[in-house]
Design a protein around this nucleic acid. Structure first.
Lengths: 261, 261
DNA sequence: CTAATAGTGTCTTTAAGACATTATCAC
DNA sequence: GTGATAATGTCTTAAAGACACTATTAG
């Protein structure tokens, strides 16, 4: 039986602060993902190289001084965990209006040498356009983007490698099961771009006739719609190709996925 | 900027316990679901009535004395949150080997009048056969099963109504997206039973040709297999029907769900 | 025979899968 | 014309959807 404040308390008047050991902190850690895109050949119209990256900070203090770690910070009594994460994210990247999602708690005893710290892990999906400014203005350079594969091979502080691994698994799942691809895309995008974003996060996603399926009713299930002009003609883009491609946008529709058909 | 122990610490030797406000406790709360089944007519072979129920405890102490609440308890320094939840679940129900899954953190300021409590919510899926003994041996009766719809209409302690609502949404999602239906079924079951369990949790799930779809390759996707005897003949059950029905079991296969086809 | 559930026949519509072919157009 | 991406044609196979029909068997 663990200590339980209830067991010794009869009513409010004799309530005393717990005599039991309490946590030394409730931090949040944030796995900030972005997809960078770099032109493959200058002047040529071709889809860019895309790469899934994660933002890490280099620690200045004990413990794990000098080691790379996930950004994060301690929660205050006057805020929720989500507020805490949003605040830390804003401090780290300067942006607030991005996809931020809680995904797990990390509470193994002794995971933090400073004491009993129960960490709450979030992932954020940030379009590279938001990180561009930030990277420019901060040359202090203990903040950097790493390709996810590289970060996973590093010796990160605390249990942050495990957290990163779990976050990656989660966004892979969500990339196929939800419309989070939109976080990495402009509001209007081509099927080629969408396919590339999905493949960047989930490399083994391979659909032969992707454009065919996404265009048909059942697979798309209403999650996408064609962008049209006032006359109802399709709006096109030739940013990545000579032949202009139809632009699409995500609708608000969230399909319900089922293994039972 | 929030308090951050890091900011005043240079190395291990001068590390001091945080001067900042720390949480007063890290509890876990567990939403224990079960499906009860009651015979509709004695002697007649018919599928039972099934009902989704949740286990609640009646509080004996301040705060919320007399109110119904989710079972749970405080985490110790020497255990993880999951261990804590498993321990509390075992104390409450006497069972350990059940599906127990973490799903969210509840940390709104002032959610607990005793202090700053960051609660970690789990749901457990328990077959009614495990709760039967328990209910028999404990007539002290501040522990009871409630139909979920009824519990949601009650005024529960703390923010437990919100937690229950979220847990219900989560298991509805998971009932269709994963094989958690197995937690409410015997190892071998008929398609009729499976359909009924799904409908008990997700009432608006309606598939006209359910047996047709589940039997075909694509929808089932290998999640189910027919139970056969040594000669490869189908194993049948006539527990719920005059005409014997084929028995199925879940395989270990976890299909990957995708909105992109 | 009846009641209650299990399972099939059959037809129509729709989607999936493969893959070759055509379209566009800056350079 | 070339190169790169976008999109369609066509054929085959498989699944979805509807719904009426047959099967089984304790009581």
């Amino acid at each position: 039986m663990q200590p339980n404040p209830d067991s010794e308390i009869e009513n409010e008047s004799n309530y005393t602060a717990s005599k039991y050991r309490t946590p030394d902190g409730a931090p949040s850690d944030i796995v900030i993902f972005t997809i960078t895109s770099t032109e493959r050949a200058a002047g040529k119209k071709a889809l860019p190289e895309r790469d899934l990256q994660v933002l890490l900070i280099q620690r200045k203090n004990w413990p794990y001084e000098g080691k790379w770690a996930l950004p994060g910070g301690f929660c205050g009594e006057d805020e929720s965990m989500y507020d805490c994460a949003r605040r830390e994210l804003a401090e780290e990247t300067g942006v607030a209006e991005v996809h931020l999602e809680y995904f797990n708690v990390y509470s193994e005893p002794k995971r933090d040498p400073r004491g009993w710290m129960i960490s709450h892990a979030f992932f954020a999906l940030v379009h590279e356009r938001y990180l561009a400014e930030r990277k420019a203005q901060d040359d202090a350079a203990d903040v950097r983007l790493f390709p996810v594969s590289e970060a996973l091979a590093m010796e990160l502080a605390f249990d942050h490698r495990v957290i990163l691994r779990d976050a990656l698994a989660k966004i892979r799942e969500n990339m196929l099961a939800t419309t989070i691809a939109k976080e990495f895309l402009p509001a209007e995008f081509t099927i080629g771009e969408l396919y590339q974003v999905i493949r960047t996060v989930v490399p083994d996603f391979a659909e032969q006739n992707f454009i065919r399926k996404i265009t048909s009713t059942q697979s798309r299930q209403g999650i996408l719609e064609e962008v049209t002009d006032e006359q109802g003609r399709g709006k096109l883009s030739n940013r990545y190709s000579q032949r202009a491609a139809q632009l699409y946008r995500f609708t608000d529709y969230k399909p319900r996925l089922s293994i039972y058909g």
